[in-house]
Structure formats: structure tokens, C-alpha cells
Design a protein around this nucleic acid. Structure first.
Lengths: 227, 227
DNA sequence: AGCGGTTGACGAACGCGGTTCGTCACGATT
DNA sequence: AATCGTGACGAACCGCGTTCGTCAACCGCT
């Protein structure tokens, strides 16, 4: 039990005048939710915890937010505000990789955020900002508009995929992790190729795999684009 | 309160001898769970509903399953048993596309299944079976082992991504859907490229986009492979 | 200055989720 | 026939999102 502050009554009064306590706005709610999403141990972010942190009850939040789903969407877009979209004026290839790297880094701030991004389609202003930047880079690369549009979809899906994979427990590919265990348990008789490639399947750092995957995507996209 | 059946005692007795009722095994639990995952409206599959369908209480399942997480993993792998891996003896490109198509079709059996597949890394025997087949196809394509191993990862992630995207509400890209709405709301002044490409971003059927994406991935992978 | 009407905040409760615990009936063993 | 260990189960716990009815504070009137 947190200590019940006897001065609480005056706080309530002051809350209306909006001096000591923030008067509970939509922004304040989203801010606190994002703070919990990123700072917390990464466990479940709940409406009740957010309310408690804002020194109120769960019901009060419903004046500003329709739904937990809406709140999640708002939080995701606010988180995406941290994605750095303007990556200097180097060659487009470097700018693309830097943008995707920033995108991934933001999503990996917390497992909860990464999980959310793979379940919610981001359609907020910041998602649009990222899409706009990607289209610009692909334009510089000489990719036609339709190809670029579809490529934006693939690149976004790729980023959320990588983040989601990273979200469930520290590096499942690491030695001793569930993947390595499963590969060791796989009998060579039934899965000869998996067995033969068991080291390759878990080789490389996250960094290397990321760069490799981006390269595969870029080559594929360029080879489809009417240069 | 559900009516208390006086005949219940005899049912318990018959359950022990395992005649009328299946005597509650791990397989029976996973079977029923998968049935609910696929047949149900696609909503949340809960331990309690599974128990009720098996004519018992939630606590009884814990004799056979450690966790809801373990149950989910078991269900996912059992679902993957339906993926058709042996796709005739045509050219590798067709076999690859057919395999991925079967994979996606299975995951799209229900939204709940699709959502699960993007959160849980599949490491069961059926996941290994699919990986084995993919490695075989890529081998036929002349892809070296390391490239093939990493490509398996990308292809799997791609499949679960597509399924997850499809999982949240009937086609978000459809006209009137949240994506189209967001694009219409996007001011051309701030997002000129997004605005210009707003039709391309939502164009194409799921089929066309799937084929296009696979083509991008294959081209990228081949161009990295030391043929 | 006094006064309804509107609105936002809140306590309490509802239904449902996964999980745990103590009990008791069962089938096998002595 | 008596006993024992096992495992199925009812009941309960705690936390979740959400809803409802109430009440106090603010606003624009007269």
C-alpha cells in the first residue's frame, strides 16, 4: 500500500486549477504509457498501472482514450517520433540503411514496443513521415513509383519482423537458446540438411544478419525496378 | 451457475475407464486447442474454454501442460503439420512458391493462429520439416549453404509477416480501411511523395503482392549466392 | 451575486483471464 | 480388506479491460 497522503485533498483542489498536478490530458496519458513501455522491465503495460502512475483510477482514462487499442496506436506513433529520418546527404544506400537502423533501434527500445509494432499497423503521422522518407530515398535510387510503394511495405514489415524476433527473450539464436537446442535435438537422419547447416543457421551477429538482409532486399528491389 | 448434474459421478467413473470420454491426454488438449484456434471466430483462445470443451476445469490441464506458452507452442507446431512440403518435382522456383503459399494458407486459417506465429518462434518438428524442405529447394537452386541458411530465416519471417498483417481485420489495405483513411488524411504539403503514391501504396491484390514479394526475395537471395 | 446545466473525474463493480492450492476419490499395492 | 500415492478437480486469488452511477467543479446565464 502506498501511503495515503493527507494533503491529498488540497492536491485534488489544485488539480483543477492545474498547478501541481498535470490536469490529466490525452498527451499526459500517452506520455506516461510510452514511459512505461520503454522504461519498465518490458512486462505487460496495463491501463491500471498507467492510471496509478498518474495518481488516478483506470476509469478516468476513458475520458481521453476510447480504447486500449487506440492508446496502443497512439503510443506506437509517439514512439516512432524518435526515428531519425533525415540521414544526411550521402549516397541513398547509406541513407536507407541508416534509416532502417534507426527504425529498428527505436522498436527495440523495449520488447513490449517491438511486440506491439508487429501487431498494430502504424498509420499515424510518424509512420507517414517514415514512409515519406523511404519513398524519397527509393526515388533517389531510381526506383519507379509503384515498385517503391510496394518496397516501403516490405521494408517496414522487415523491420518489425526483426524487432519482434528480438523481442522474445534475449537472442533466441544465441547458444543455449531454444533454437540452438531444437537444432541439436534434430536427428540427422530425418533432417539431414538442417543438421548439416545447423551452425550456419545460427551464425552471424544480429548486425551482420541485418546488413545481409537489407542487402538482399535492396538487390531484389533494384532488379525489379525499371531503372 | 451451471446446473449441477446429479449423474456427474457416474461420468467421472466412466471417465476413468476411458470409454465415453477421452481420458484427458496431452494430445487431446492440443487437438481441442487447435480446433478452437481454427474453427472459432478467431477471437481469443483461452485455457478455460478449452477445459470446458473437454468437460473439465482449467486446473486439470496443468497436469499435462506446464504453461499457456507451452500450449501455444504445441498448437503452433501441430498446425504447421498441415503445411505441404513435398511440392512435386517441377523447377525449384515453382516448388518454392508452392511451399510458401501452403505455409501462408495454413497460418491464415485463423487470425489467432497468424498472430501467434508472429510472436512465437517455431522450433517444433514441423518447423524443422519446413526448414529442411526450404534448404532442399535452395540447394537445387544452387545457393550455397550459408546463404541458404540465412535465406530460410528471411523467408519464414516473410511468411509470418504476411500472415500477421492479414490477421488484423479483413484486409487493412482495402478501400475504406484504416490505411486508406490515413492516406486520404495525409496532407499533400507535408507528405508529397506519400500523397503522390497513395494509390500505388494500396494497389494490387494480396496474390499479386505475395508473388511480387517472393520474386524480390528470390532475386535478392540469388544475387548473393555464390552460384 | 446567485444559480442551473454541463462535463470531467472517480469509486465500485462486472466478467473474464491464467494460475495455484488443498482436498478427495480413484486404482494399484500389500 | 486395508492402505497408499497419485492426479483430477472445485474453489479461490489476483490482475486485466471496461462500464455505470454519482458527484464535484466549472461555465454562462439571469
Amino acid at each position: 500500500m502506498p501511503q495515503r497522503d493527507p494533503f491529498r485533498v488540497s492536491e485534488v483542489a489544485s488539480r483543477r486549477t492545474g498547478l501541481a498536478k498535470s490536469p490529466l490530458s490525452r498527451d499526459a496519458i500517452v506520455d506516461e504509457a510510452l514511459r512505461q513501455f520503454t522504461s519498465e522491465g518490458g512486462d505487460a503495460v496495463t491501463l491500471r498501472k498507467i492510471a496509478k502512475a498518474l495518481d488516478t483510477g483506470p476509469a478516468s482514462l476513458y475520458a481521453y482514450v476510447d480504447d486500449m487499442a487506440e492508446l496502443r496506436a497512439l503510443v506506437l506513433d509517439r514512439a516512432l517520433a524518435a526515428v531519425e529520418v533525415d540521414q544526411g546527404d550521402g549516397p541513398w544506400r547509406e541513407r536507407l540503411e541508416a534509416l532502417l537502423r534507426s527504425y529498428i533501434r527505436v522498436l527495440m527500445t523495449s520488447p513490449a514496443l517491438a511486440r506491439m509494432s508487429s501487431q498494430t499497423i502504424a498509420v499515424g503521422p510518424n509512420a507517414l513521415r517514415i514512409a515519406e522518407a523511404l519513398l524519397g530515398i527509393l526515388e533517389d535510387a531510381g526506383v519507379d513509383r509503384l515498385t517503391a510503394a510496394w518496397a516501403v511495405d516490405m521494408l517496414s514489415a522487415f523491420v518489425t519482423s526483426v524487432a519482434a524476433e528480438h523481442a522474445q527473450g534475449a537472442d533466441p539464436v544465441a547458444p543455449g537458446g531454444p533454437v540452438a537446442q531444437a537444432l541439436d535435438r534434430a536427428p540427422a537422419s530425418r533432417y539431414p540438411r538442417v543438421h548439416a547447416a545447423r551452425e550456419d543457421l545460427v551464425s552471424g551477429t544480429g548486425e551482420e544478419r541485418f546488413a545481409w538482409s537489407v542487402d538482399v532486399l535492396v538487390r531484389g528491389i533494384l532488379s525489379r525496378a525499371g531503372v
